[in-house]
C-alpha cells in the first residue's frame, strides 16, 4: 500500500515534469539559440554571447517592427473589445429573430484556415482599392479576433444571474444605472479576458499579417522571413525581446486591474 502510494507520487511528479518540458523546451531553446554567435543552429555553443541582443537593441528595425506590432495590437484590442462586447450582448443576452443564425455565422471565420482568410482579405482590399499597410492588417486581425472576443465575453453573460438587472431596475435604477452598477461590473472579467485574448492573438499573428500588412512588417512576419532567408542569432534574440514586451504589457494590464479593484474597495 505504502509502496504503491509512493510509486504513484513518483509517476505523478514525472508526468508533471514531462508536461512542463514539453511546453517549455521550445521556448528555452529559442533563448539558448539567441545566446550563440553563429548562424548555424548547433548545440552546445562554443561561445556564449549577448552580442545578438546588443545588435537587436541597437537596430532601428527592432524598434520599428515592435512599434508596428504594437500599433496593430492596440488598435485591435480597442476595436475588438467594443465590437466583441456589443456582439456578446446580441449573442448571449437577448433572444431575437435570427439569433441562432447570427451565432453560427459569427464563428465561421474562426474555423476558416487563416492563410486562406488572409489571401481573401488581400484580394478584397485590392478589389476596393485599399493599399495594404498596418491599418489593413488591423482589419484583417479583426475579422478573426472579433468573433473570439465575442465568444469570450458571451461566456461571462451566461455566468451571472441576469435577474440582478431586473432587481436593480425594480429598486429604482435607471437603464443607464443598471448598466453601470450591474452589467458592466459583472461583465468586466469577461471583457478583460477578451482584451487579453485580442492582444495576444494579434501580437503573435503571422498568417493574416503576411498577406495584409503590405510594406509594414510586424514582429511575427519579420521573424518568419528572417528565419527562412537570412537567419542569424539576431532572430531568436528579437523573438525573446518580443515575448518579453508582450509579457510585460500583459502583466502591466493585470496590475492596473488589481490596482483599480483595490481603489474601488477602499
Amino acid at each position: 500500500m505504502r509502496v504503491g502510494r509512493r510509486a504513484a507520487a513518483v509517476v505523478r511528479a514525472l508526468w508533471i515534469v514531462a508536461i512542463l518540458a514539453f511546453l517549455y523546451v521550445p521556448i528555452v531553446s529559442v533563448v539558448l539559440a539567441s545566446l550563440a554567435n553563429t548562424r548555424y543552429m548547433r548545440f552546445p555553443h562554443k561561445v556564449w554571447t549577448l552580442d545578438a541582443y546588443r545588435d537587436a537593441l541597437g537596430s532601428f528595425t527592432t524598434w520599428q517592427i515592435h512599434s508596428i506590432s504594437l500599433s496593430i495590437a492596440v488598435s485591435v484590442v480597442l476595436i475588438a473589445t467594443v465590437l466583441g462586447t456589443l456582439g456578446a450582448v446580441a449573442f448571449a443576452r437577448y433572444d431575437w429573430r435570427g439569433r441562432s443564425l447570427f451565432q453560427r455565422i459569427l464563428v465561421l471565420p474562426i474555423f476558416f484556415p487563416q492563410p486562406v482568410l488572409g489571401l481573401g482579405l488581400l484580394l478584397s482590399f485590392s478589389a476596393v482599392g485599399l493599399a495594404p499597410s498596418w491599418k489593413t492588417a488591423v482589419i484583417g486581425h479583426l475579422v478573426w479576433i472579433v468573433p473570439i472576443v465575442t465568444l469570450v465575453v458571451s461566456i461571462r453573460f451566461f455566468g451571472y444571474d441576469v435577474a440582478q438587472e431586473e432587481a436593480a431596475l425594480d429598486l429604482g435604477a435607471s437603464r443607464w444605472q443598471v448598466i453601470r452598477e450591474i452589467t458592466m461590473p459583472q461583465l468586466w472579467p469577461g471583457v478583460f479576458s477578451g482584451m487579453l485574448f485580442a492582444f495576444l492573438l494579434s501580437w503573435s499573428n503571422l498568417p493574416l499579417s503576411i498577406y495584409t500588412s503590405g510594406p509594414d512588417t510586424p514582429l511575427p512576419v519579420w521573424l518568419f522571413t528572417r528565419t527562412a532567408t537570412n537567419y542569424s542569432p539576431l532572430v531568436p534574440s528579437v523573438a525573446v525581446i518580443g515575448t518579453a514586451v508582450s509579457a510585460l504589457i500583459v502583466i502591466a494590464l493585470a496590475l492596473v486591474l488589481a490596482a483599480g479593484k483595490a481603489v474601488r474597495r477602499a
Binding site: 451571472y160 444571474d161 435577474a163 440582478q164 431586473e166 432587481a167 436593480a168 452598477e181 450591474i182
Partner: peptide
C-alpha cells in the same frame, strides 16, 4: 426574486 438576484 425567486433566485433572490443578490448582486454578487
Amino acid at each position: 426574486f425567486q433566485s433572490l438576484a443578490l448582486f454578487d
